[in-house]
Computed example of a mutant assay.
Amino acid sequence: MRILLWHVHGSWTTAFVQGPHTYLVPVTPDRGPDGLGRARTYDWPDSVIEVPPERLRDTDVDLVVLQRPHEYALAERWLGRRLPPTVYLEHNAPHGCSPGVPDTRHPAADLPDVTLVHVTHFNRLMWDAGSTPTTVVEHGIIDPGPLWTGELERAAVVVNEPLRRGRTTGTDLLPRFADAAPLDVFGMGTHGIADRLGIPPDRCQDHELDQRDLHHAMAARRVYVHPVRWTSLGLSLLEAMHLGMPVVALATTEVTEAVPEGAGVVSNRIDVVTDAVRNFVANPVHARLTGEGARAAALARYGLPRFLDDWERLIKEVTR
Rank of each mutant, 00 (worst) to 15 (best):
Pro146Asp: 13
Phe186Glu: 06
Ala220Lys: 15
His215Val: 03
Leu147Met: 14
Ala156Pro: 05
Val185Lys: 02
Pro133Ala: 06
Val157Gln: 11
Arg212Gly: 00
Val137Lys: 06
Phe177Asn: 00
Trp230Asn: 13
Arg176Val: 03
Ala180Gln: 11
Cys204Glu: 03
Val119Gln: 13
Asp179Pro: 00
Asp195Lys: 15
Met218Leu: 15
Arg229Trp: 09
Thr132Asp: 10
Leu173Met: 04
Ile199Ser: 09
Val137Ser: 07
His191Phe: 12
Asp202Ile: 00
Gly189Met: 10
His226Ser: 12
Val223His: 05
Leu174Asn: 11
Arg196Leu: 06
Gln205His: 09
Leu209Tyr: 09
Thr149Gly: 01
Asp213Ala: 12
Thr120Asp: 06
Arg203Cys: 07
Leu174Ile: 07
Ile193Pro: 01
Glu208Trp: 15
Val136Ala: 03
Leu174Arg: 09
Val159Gly: 02
Pro201Leu: 08
Thr168Glu: 15
Gly170Thr: 06
Asp202Ser: 10
Phe177Ile: 04
Cys204Arg: 02
Thr171Phe: 08
His139Ile: 04
Leu125Glu: 15
Pro162Gln: 07
Thr231Leu: 10
Val137Arg: 11
Val136Met: 05
Glu138Arg: 15
Phe177Met: 03
Glu153Tyr: 01
Val119Ala: 12
Tyr224Thr: 07
Trp127Glu: 05
Trp148Thr: 08
Val158Lys: 01
Asp210Pro: 00
Ala194Cys: 05
Pro182Ser: 11
Gly187Ala: 10
Val185Ile: 10
Ser131Ile: 03
His215Tyr: 12
Val137Glu: 05
Gly187Arg: 06
Arg154Asn: 00
Arg164Lys: 15
Ser131Val: 02
His139Val: 01
Ser131Gln: 13
Met126Arg: 13
Phe177His: 04
Gly192Arg: 11
Gly145Leu: 08
Ile199Glu: 10
Ala219Asp: 06
Arg154Phe: 01
Asp128Gly: 02
Glu138Gln: 13
Cys204Ile: 08
Val136Gln: 03
Asp206Pro: 00
Gly140Met: 09
Trp148Pro: 00
Pro201Gln: 11
Tyr224Trp: 12
Val228Asn: 14
Ala178Trp: 09
Gly130Val: 08
Thr190Lys: 08
Gly189Lys: 11
Val185His: 03
Arg154Lys: 13
Arg222Gly: 02
Asp206Glu: 14
Pro133Phe: 04
Ala129Met: 03
Phe122Ser: 03
Pro200Leu: 10
Pro146Asn: 08
Ser236Asn: 11
Met218Val: 09
Ala155Thr: 01
Asp143Ile: 05
Leu147Cys: 03
Glu153Ser: 13
Asp184Ser: 12
Val225Gly: 04
Arg203Thr: 03
Arg229Ala: 01
Ala129Ser: 15
Leu163Ala: 12
Arg221Cys: 12
Gly187Thr: 10
Gly130Leu: 12
Arg167Met: 11
